[in-house]
Design a protein around this nucleic acid. Structure first.
Lengths: 151, 151
DNA sequence: TATTGTTATACTCTATAACTATA
DNA sequence: TATAGTTATAGAGTATAACAATA
């Protein structure tokens, strides 16, 4: 653990919450979509992994099963997601986006991207590349099921 | 708004919540300190700006006044912060860390930094420098009172 | 009246513990 | 008994609306 680590850690601790808040605020104001960040991430995962189980979603989000169950329940009640038991193994469920959920997610994602891109366009391409590279590094380091994570 | 912006925005949208969760989990397990991220950030701001008003804290956190009031109230009840009306302008309050709050904050910060640094030590110095630079860029772009923020 | 802060209310996030149902 | 998921309960985060107090 060098002084570089510590400096880098300090920066992350300072900046990541600020960016996170901007994302959250943008998402809440995403006209008509109005998703929380965990809801958004859950929908995104279900879109990419149609038929996913609750446990898989929980793993991806880094949340406990009960938390995820409640979260998904909200999405089901808003008719954005279907939750059906698997034939042959009725303990498992299969999650999928509805025809309401799909376009709503797409809209939320576009809006969130715009909000971020509006800030990012003040940077040069090189600077943006630096950020992209950083995000890739951080992704590898922090993605769930990579190191200590499961609550 | 170029394709670079959008790509960069996508990366941020994907990765920042993951890093945020790692920070949150680390902080919750920060033995004895047990602070939420907003609590931590509030304490940090009050430490650096002793005597700050509630509005100043709210601005810094990017929260509404009621949210901040509730947040600070929790810190006061835990005896981490003092909240005294200003002589001569009794609408304003002055916030400061207590002798309990100061060391607790220091401990929480050290712990959080260690948790992050443990991951970061898997990177080269160059990679860490890339992250530091990115964080500085993002800080400028997203810090409150810099663009659309006030919830 | 405008400003600073608090209280009331309501929802989401998130956890642990206890439970149900299925394998 | 072990596994997948739900329900019960609880505290924090957060907002808007309504309020209180002071300038």
């Amino acid at each position: 653990m060098t002084t570089v680590d510590v400096n880098c850690a300090q920066e992350i601790l300072e900046v990541v919450p600020i960016v996170m808040r901007a994302i959250r605020n943008g998402m809440r104001q995403g006209r008509s979509a109005d998703l929380s960040v965990p809801q958004f991430r859950a929908l995104l995962f279900i879109q990419r992994n149609s038929g996913a189980s609750l446990s898989e979603v929980a793993d991806h989000l880094g949340l406990t099963l009960p938390s995820t169950s409640t979260l998904v329940d909200g999405l089901v009640q808003r008719s954005l997601v279907t939750r059906v038991p698997v034939e042959g193994n009725r303990r498992r469920i299969r999650l999928a986006l509805t025809d309401t959920g799909r376009p709503l997610l797409e809209q939320a994602r576009q809006y969130a991207q715009e909000v971020l891109a509006q800030r990012l366009c003040n940077l040069t391409e090189d600077e943006q590349q630096t950020i992209v590279l950083s995000m890739e590094l951080l992704h590898k380091l922090f993605q769930p099921a990579n190191g200590t994570n499961g609550g």
